[in-house]
Design a protein around this nucleic acid. Sequence first.
DNA 1: CCGGAACCTACTGGAAGGTAACCTTACGCG
DNA 2: CGCGTAAGGTTACCTTCCAGTAGGTTCCGG
Lengths: 215, 215
Amino acid sequence: MLASVPATPTFKRLPRAVREQQMLDAAVRVFSRRGFHAASMDEIADDAGISKPMVYAYLGSKEQLFLACVHREGTRMLEAIVAVVGADLPADQQLWRGLRAFFGFVGAHRDGWAVLYRQARGQEAFIADLAHMRERMVEVIAGLFRRAVQAHGRLPREADLSATAYALVGAAESLADWLADHPDADPEKIATRMMNVAWLGAGQLLRGEVWRRDE
Amino acid sequence: MLASVPATPTFKRLPRAVREQQMLDAAVRVFSRRGFHAASMDEIADDAGISKPMVYAYLGSKEQLFLACVHREGTRMLEAIVAVVGADLPADQQLWRGLRAFFGFVGAHRDGWAVLYRQARGQEAFIADLAHMRERMVEVIAGLFRRAVQAHGRLPREADLSATAYALVGAAESLADWLADHPDADPEKIATRMMNVAWLGAGQLLRGEVWRRDE
DNA sequence: CCGGAACCTACTGGAAGGTAACCTTACGCG
DNA sequence: CGCGTAAGGTTACCTTCCAGTAGGTTCCGG
């Protein structure tokens, strides 16, 4: 009989590891579409092609699920950046490569990272974890500057370093936001603009100077 | 007669305009303490010393109430900035004064503006209005640069101008966030640091150059 | 004394987080 | 081979919370 072979190849039982990733994918989609509170577990489960209790069984509560999303995406992004920043390159080259990787990543995950990240800020329950990831990013950049300044034979003040790093991270996030909302924008171009303002500063920019990458 | 002055100063009937401001004050407090969704209309009404139906009668729905908050605070901030930026000062002076006003404002409304603003981002319903306010801010800064560049005899590309402005706005917001979380930080100092990185850029900073305000 | 503005208590209706109890397929092991 | 059991999966429910409202009361101005 025909009926013995099920005509629905989609609904197969899958091992936990696979389902978990599918659920996280769905959760990222829904969270970034709706925001944390407005997203319902029903919709996430639906989007993942599974029923709600499974989500609870595998990922725990809604909060835990959200944290898992942020953690996965954040780790991917940080790895993508760290991978391309060579430790012994000149500072501007490091910054350039990091920025290019960052905007490349955001460009490739438009509805994923940027929006998710924005969601997490201000949601009381997550600011601690978010601040921690942000801190790691800031520390990477601050460390970059620390070495560069020391290479110039001066000793930097920590407060100045981290303030500068914070400002750069904020600037990058702002442009990433803009990028996320403009599907036809070119990440590489954004990275170049960001590099210009970050490295040269407004003062030199409006005098017509341009940063060149001469790799 | 003495009786004409009521002896109960707390529970007096008040004209609409006054109550509305009290409600907005309470709403800003509660929204920034809890976040948009976690804030309940009951708590806001309670905090305002009034009952819930009054809030609905005067300010409409929860969304409208939130928008009213954002709008009021945002307008106040923009006015504070525009008021100090003289139209015919050199560009760096304008930027410096604007930044000082901005961080001064945030410092004076720590639990008000910064958190409220962060709340609004990512909440589907508000991104349009938020983007509009942000756009006004970006346009102010972009206009500042446009004139400065033209004063140098060159014609700027709009895309570059707004990208630069976006980056600066993002950097300022990021530092403002940091400021909102550090009650003992000095707004003036943050403004100086921001001015350094914005005007000089990282390249000159790590060579040890410093922007001086010589007013 | 009447109209309307300020104000209240008390309710409804629905949405959504979370769970209990149950089915069903794969597959390891005797 | 077959059988038991755990892992994959489901339906249907409970509960709580909260935006929003119905309908009534008090007070002031004219």
